[in-house]
């Protein structure tokens, strides 16, 4: 898509303004933040829900804008989590972010859910060289969506993770942390659940996007959902398979 974004100066004057959205899991969360010298979070809303993100998200953004006395056209950037997570949830966030970006002609900062969890990791969980910080997300199946020390996420079983960890111990964060820690310990891996919040903090996401800078995101293509898994397909004979987009 052609981009006609002017990114030389903030639209509202002195501060760069971002809206951050996370709808990838059992929460619908938004935050507004601005960057002058430092980043200030001006609004943050979150509500627990296993479904209903499609109905809840827009009013939540409206309320945050209203409470901050911001207008949508004041935004310079929209940040969003792109998965892995709930397929539908990921699409709601990405469709909202890309829809706003198209209309307002601003860039989108797409961040993986595992990176977003790492952004919110407490200092106490940031272990030394002999340990790994693992973001672990329930996938709704037997496996997990995981990432180690800020690397790219992957879908895998506890034993696949154990292989990647080698002889390192693991501190786990995210909504799959406690279940995965148990599974790892059963495999003989030294694993513990971190003290960080198991949820993504949209304010951290907003701050991260602003620290990178609007120009950084403007150079990138609009984010696409990251599913880490094909679509389930039931064939005519009843057999099941998975498929990805052809394109």
């Amino acid at each position: 898509m052609p981009r006609e974004t002017s990114i030389r100066q903030p639209r509202s004057g002195a501060a760069w303004r971002v809206l951050a959205i996370d709808t990838c899991f059992a929460r619908c969360a938004v935050a507004l933040a601005e960057r002058r010298e430092a980043v200030t979070v001006v609004a943050s809303e979150a509500e627990a829900m296993t479904r209903g993100h499609a109905a809840a998200l827009t009013p939540m953004i409206e309320k945050a804008l209203h409470d901050s006395a911001w207008l949508a056209p004041d935004l310079d950037l929209v940040a969003v989590t792109i998965g892995p997570g709930s397929f539908t949830g990921v699409r709601i966030g990405v469709a909202m972010a890309r829809g706003l970006a198209m209309t307002l002609r601003v860039p989108v900062a797409g961040v993986t859910t595992t990176d977003a969890l790492f952004l919110g990791a407490a200092a106490a969980d940031r272990v030394g060289a002999d340990g790994a910080l693992v973001a672990a997300i329930e996938s709704g199946r037997d496996d997990y969506f995981m990432a180690i020390d800020g690397a790219s996420p992957f879908a895998g079983t506890p034993s696949a993770l154990a292989t990647r960890l080698g002889d390192r111990c693991a501190i786990l964060i995210g909504d799959g942390a406690s279940r995965l820690a148990g599974a790892l310990r059963a495999l003989g891996v030294q694993a513990s659940v971190g003290v960080s919040s198991p949820s993504i903090d949209p304010a951290r996401l907003a701050a991260h996007a602003l620290h990178r800078g609007v120009e950084f995101w403007a150079r990138r293509d609009p984010p696409r959902p990251l599913y880490l898994r094909g679509a389930d397909v039931t064939l005519a004979d009843g057999a099941r398979t998975t498929a990805d987009l052809v394109r």
Partner: peptide, 14 residues
């Protein structure tokens, strides 16, 4: 959901 969310985004922005 994708179409509705996109339309809401445009409505919200404008």
């Amino acid at each position: 959901i994708v179409g509705v969310t996109t339309a809401k985004a445009i409505a919200l922005a404008t």
